[in-house]
Design a binder for these strands. Structure first.
Lengths: 349, 349
DNA sequence: ATAGGGTATGGAAACGTTTTCCTGAGCGCT
DNA sequence: AGCGCTCAGGAAAACGTTTCCATACCCTAT
């Protein structure tokens, strides 16, 4: 059973294997150019002794750090924690460490986090979560990132297409279209939208999808209530109350993420409005609890864990000159929270 | 706007401030012993240039690393992601970085993670999640940790009392007692337990509370069905199916955490068993979605975010010879998933 | 045989800090 | 005035790697 021992240095391994420090380093950092015999001996000894390189020394000397800095909007939101799960899985496979920081959806704070990460010399930066509609913020982030890249740093983003770097992108617009089409096919016309944090591109994109589906059916988003709040359960509650108050004729609510949908459902329950008989509700993301809600939530499934995995994998690829994009599939998952529009308002042509 | 610049070294700051490297270091690392005049100048220059110390060099030279390694059982379980949220908050306040790794509730893998973290020379280790009933695992973990501590590392654990280090502990037994007493007062006697991953002390402790409450009412846990599975939603489903199949007379199910309770509820819904009219369900933890389930979940509230905060705060205190313990409060939160026992079985004395 | 080109290996510099050890100045005390 | 003491500040060692450079060797082509 190898014990980490107080201070086990590469020099110890080298000595015990009867080779020089340089050779031992070459073997263990996989640089090659060492005879199979010596290499084998070094690996053997290293393993016996349970040697693990000191990452601080390694980074200081070599330049690239084995840590990935992951910025998410909110750690304890399932959408992000599932993404984080995917990132952590891949990191574990590759022997990387994951540092998580969160931005609370505040663009300036996020920028500070980013600068901090860069100053800390992490090797890889991953940013999960929507971009902001604010050009200043995006421009500054872009500047920081390209400086970071030119120093050899690797970058990928998830769900953000505004930074000019490798990105894993769900097709938010197509998803918005799909979920809206679903409601329209069920006969709903009085549709309201519970829209998330204003100023996020995710909101804009998903709304664009909703709008596009509506147009195909000869309707316009401008005629429907779109209520903005936070991308959280509380945000969902607020919007639902407002929709119920101002637009009692509504028969379906599109929540632009699942967290909001959960809030919407809780308000409907409090008002004893039967779902889906009197009101349909759809979400977006398919966080894992969505299937276990009552009623279970109709939503657009995004493969969050895979997205996390893809992002890190992408960042690990040899850098290319042009930013790469990987788009993820999405699936409309029809469950119990959506049903045919009630007669009253639906039967009108 | 200070830019991190390609390679800004402490030496640059020192030179520009007209002091030696040593002095600049003393100022910026807050070691003192520098005249106010020089110190001011150094700080001034450092700030102007936007200097940020290279943490790798700092750690290599100084010994203590500004990162906290957080091991959780499962990142994308809300119980743990809320704890992580608390840890990250405090870390951000103190300028520390948080590295998250997860163990998947596998004791051996967890041990590997722990060794890895130590080898990586993190400064602070936090372990969240139950201990294991396996003495070998606990003993090995204890050995690693005390070696780590004797090298100056800081440690705290959350919800684990078996490691002989500073700990933040919810009173699992009292919680189990409270939730059971609640059901007993509602007249339930045919109670079943959906118990989590076997071999976890959390399971043992919560069960002990259940048992104790039962005894006070002249009942014994031995006469009731206790079905073990995973501490997950799927685990909850499995146990619920089994309970329904083998013990149809059951009127209340105690799930030993909320994830399982969610699974139990979904099975009951599938079987069209009305909750709480025909069956009461209670959980444990009060994850944030618990209030939004249908029916909303009666459960024991644990302040997860605070627990994360407390743990890091505790670890940051000057080390003491005897391990410190902070116990957290717990509250029975009565919601809609629990109600009076149905007449049929409850009226029997 | 001998020059020339790899190739495997070792020695030593470098990475950017903190910390130890010194030096010299200022001070109070006898 | 001389003695130790404290204290600010500088020079240099140390931290544990990677990498550059030099060296010795072997092989092949002249």
């Amino acid at each position: 059973m190898p014990k980490p021992g107080p201070r086990l240095r590469l020099a110890d391994v080298a000595e015990r294997a009867g080779v020089s420090l340089a050779t031992a380093s070459r073997v263990l950092s996989g640089r090659g150019g060492v005879s199979e015999e010596l290499a084998g001996r070094v690996r053997q000894v290293s393993h016996e002794l349970g040697y693990v390189a000191n990452p601080y020394a390694r980074t200081l000397a070599g330049g690239t750090s084995p840590t990935v800095g992951l910025i998410v909007h909110q750690v304890d939101d399932p959408y992000f924690s599932e993404i984080a799960g995917g990132v952590i899985e891949v990191a574990a496979e590759k022997g990387l460490l994951v540092q998580i920081s969160h931005s609370g959806r505040d663009p300036d704070y996020e920028l500070r986090q980013l600068r901090h990460l860069i100053a800390q010399r992490v090797g890889i930066i991953l940013i999960a979560g929507s971009g902001y509609d604010d050009p200043r913020v995006e421009a500054e982030a872009r500047t920081e990132l390209s400086a970071f890249q030119s120093l050899g740093g690797r970058v990928a983003v998830i769900g953000r297409h505004t930074l000019g770097v490798d990105a894993v992108l769900p097709d938010n617009e197509a998803g918005g279209r799909a979920v809206t089409a679903h409601l329209l096919e069920l006969g709903h016309r009085r549709i309201a939208v519970a829209a998330g944090t204003p100023g996020l591109t995710t909101v804009t994109d998903r709304l664009a999808g909703v709008s596009s589906a509506l147009r195909q059916h000869g309707l316009s988003l401008d005629d429907l209530p779109v209520v903005h709040s936070d991308f959280t359960r509380d945000g969902g509650r607020v919007t639902a109350e407002q929709i119920l108050g101002d637009h009692p004729e509504t028969t379906a609510i599109i929540a632009l993420n699942d967290a909001m949908a959960i809030g919407v459902l809780s308000v409907l329950r409090a008002h004893r409005i039967p779902v889906p008989e009197r009101m349909s509700v759809v979400g977006f993301d398919d966080v894992s609890v969505a299937a276990d809600l009552a009623p279970s939530l109709t939503t657009i499934r995004l493969p969050m864990t895979d997205m996390g995995r893809m992002a890190l994998t992408l960042a690990l690829r040899p850098p290319s000159t042009r930013p790469r994009r990987r788009s993820t599939g999405h699936t409309l998952v029809v469950r119990d929270s959506s049903g045919p529009a009630p007669r009253l308002s639906a039967s009108r042509p």
